[in-house]
Amino acid sequence: MFEARLVQGNLLKKVVDAVKDLVTDANFDCSSSGFTLQAMDNSHVSLVSLSLRSDGFEHFRCDRNMSMGMSLGNLAKILKCAGNDDIVTMKAADDGDTVTFMFESPKEDRVSDFELKLMDIDSEHLGIPDTDYAATVTLPAAEYQRICRDLSSIGDTVVISATKDGVKFSSSGDVGTANITVRQNTTADKKEEQVSIDLKEPVALTFALRYLNSFAKATPLASHVSLSMARDLPVMVDYQISDMGHLRFYLAPKIED
């Protein structure tokens, strides 16, 4: 059987809210090492990779590797019924066709359980190679969200270029053009405002803003987000989930014809 107890239950809610618009149905894979998900959006342009390590759960038991197909919309509906401070426990039998979510209030005066029907989902896993990224910028997650939102009002695509001067986000459209440059700032008073840039070589790639904007729905999960780029490769947008794992998004670049 599978059983996992998460004291920070709202973390699961944040994860599902971050990916449900990108991916409709997905397989959650459980093993003794943790709870993971890998799924592409319908157009196979972007990929979501979630990893929650078993040691991040208060209790984690997985006797046999299993894949649980879920409608993320329905899962979000169920998780919406959990209180913000509730402890969430997931349970599933090895050969069952449902997963149960139990919500316990912190004062232990309210317990509820919701059963979600599992679905059979055909999914192909992609191998994500270890990559020596040319540039990685780590910036406040709220700043990334703002850049994507602001540029979306100007154009549909963004050119992200990393040079020794900083990381520039450029967009253009009918309205005109926009450039936003973030520079390294590791001495900001507040840690949550710090920006760090690790540049091995200059790199510039073009991406669809629609997807980058969608990734920003993960903002509540982490104070910072890292964008890692290498020439002619998908960008990796990485939200670290403290003490547990990560939620990563990959987006294929636009390619010059």
């Binding site: 192909e124 992609l126 490769l233 390619i255 010059e256």
Partner: peptide
């Protein structure tokens, strides 16, 4: 004009 790449062009099957 740039065209949108697909992930399978970059990441292979496991």
């Amino acid at each position: 004009k740039a065209s949108q790449g697909r992930l399978e062009s970059f990441f292979g099957p496991v």
